[in-house]
């Protein structure tokens, strides 16, 4: 067994929360630069200009990129030979609470009905996968409410197939319009079941915007969906233009012979995530 100290995990998680909220990932910045150069509308170009300026300012002043620092989502790959005295859940939660406090990040978690803020952004939403070996990898995502609200899960009929999937995704983006702070990134979960489809959809958002899916068929599907949603012309912040969506990331999972689960997770342009390995 390899022992990893809870305090080391907490410190790394705290750091990750603070830096992800102030340092726009390089791949996202490159897309903003591309959009600024190529967007067909002046209003859309101006949005990209502001977003680039915002990213510079955030890195410099350490004010968060967006005031909605999100619920804190963690994807953990925990080696079966790793032992964390005190527990991994607590180590991550403690780190998240410290990071949100020390980084002056907004706490956005509340009771669902009484709407009282929990005050420290707890609970962290932690997904743990056990993997062989003695390594630990923690990915953090700050997921804002505006884009999450535009996400959907549906249970299609297998007969609807790819055409049904495409129709649902395009319709979703059209209905969401300016609300989720476009240009967005779409995480699409196809298959699995009612709880698995949204899980793989959101996790797909951890991929780099400019990576290419290793399965050429899926890569082609991603390209087809991206083109279809960008034809909607919603544009940056809904002001019109060719950049409604920056990237589409698809994850597939086997499903029941009776089902075709589909999840669309809408991620705003403020795609904040980071990872750390032990």
């Amino acid at each position: 067994m390899r022992e990893i100290k809870a305090a080391d995990i907490s410190a790394a998680v705290a750091q990750m929360c603070m830096s992800a909220n102030t340092m726009l990932p390089e791949d996202v910045r490159r897309k903003f630069e591309e959009g600024y150069k190529n967007e067909s509308t002046e209003a859309g170009k101006e949005i990209f200009r502001q977003l680039l300026e915002n990213a510079d300012l955030s890195a410099e002043t350490k004010l968060p990129l967006c005031q909605d620092c999100g619920l804190a989502i963690f994807y953990v790959e925990l080696g079966e030979d790793v032992y964390v005295p005190g527990g991994i859940n607590k180590a991550i939660t403690d780190g998240m609470v410290a990071g949100y406090k020390d980084g002056f990040l907004r706490k956005s978690s509340c009771h669902p009905l009484e709407r009282k803020n929990t005050g420290d952004n707890t609970p962290a939403i932690i997904h743990i996968d056990f993997v062989p070996g003695d390594k630990l990898k923690i990915s953090y995502m700050a997921k804002g409410g505006g884009s999450e609200n535009m996400s959907r899960v549906t249970m299609l009929s297998p007969s609807q197939g790819w055409e049904g999937i495409k129709k649902f995704v395009v319709q979703r983006v059209a209905e969401a319009g300016p609300n989720p702070c476009p240009p967005t990134i779409l995480g699409i979960g196809i298959g699995g079941n009612f709880e698995q489809a949204p899980k793989i959809a959101k996790k797909a958002l951890l991929r780099k915007l400019d990576d290419v899916h290793p399965d050429p068929k899926v890569a082609a599907m991603e390209a087809e969906l991206l083109e279809a949603v960008n034809k909607l012309g919603i544009g940056p912040m809904g002001l019109g233009g060719s950049y409604t969506c920056l990237a589409v990331k698809i994850a597939l999972a086997p499903c029941h012979i009776a089902s075709l689960p589909l999840a669309v997770n809408v991620q705003c342009h403020s795609a904040r995530h980071e990872e750390v390995e032990f």
Partner: peptide, 25 residues
């Protein structure tokens, strides 16, 4: 502009809570 929180913050020169402090943000 949504998601330009740092940029817009620059244009706010003063701020004080005038009601419902218990609501935090």
């Amino acid at each position: 502009t949504g998601g330009a929180g740092a940029l817009l913050s620059k244009c706010i020169t003063a701020s004080k809570i005038i009601a419902f402090e218990e609501l935090g943000p």
